[in-house]
């Protein structure tokens, strides 16, 4: 049972972090591109990026804690 818990934790956090990595990369690349094109829109772009990253990273943080729960069980 213990090995299954470790396996589940690895899968949960690995896939969550993979999705977050791809999403963060897209968000930050577009933010840098937008700020470079129009520096006067920096505040709006930073705020939108902050909200987007908050949305993207909520899931892997939950998956991190779920991984802990699976490891403990």
């Amino acid at each position: 049972m213990e090995i299954y818990g470790l396996l589940a934790a690895a899968i949960v956090f690995g896939l969550g972090a993979l999705g977050a990595g791809i999403g963060n990369g897209l968000i930050f690349s577009k933010t840098v591109e937008g700020i470079s094109r129009q520096p006067e829109l920096r505040g709006a772009l930073q705020t939108t990026a902050f909200i987007g990253v908050g949305l993207v990273e909520a899931l892997p943080i939950i998956s991190l804690v779920l991984a802990f729960i699976f490891m403990a069980s």
Binding site: V32, I35, Q46, A49, F50, V53, E57
Partner: peptide
Amino acid sequence: LAWKLVQLGNAAISGRKPRSGLGFLSRA
């Protein structure tokens, strides 16, 4: 995350490479 975003904005405007990464690892 907010601190990193401000650093990112500064780096994008000044055109230099950001010193640290922006990934999820530090926040995780």
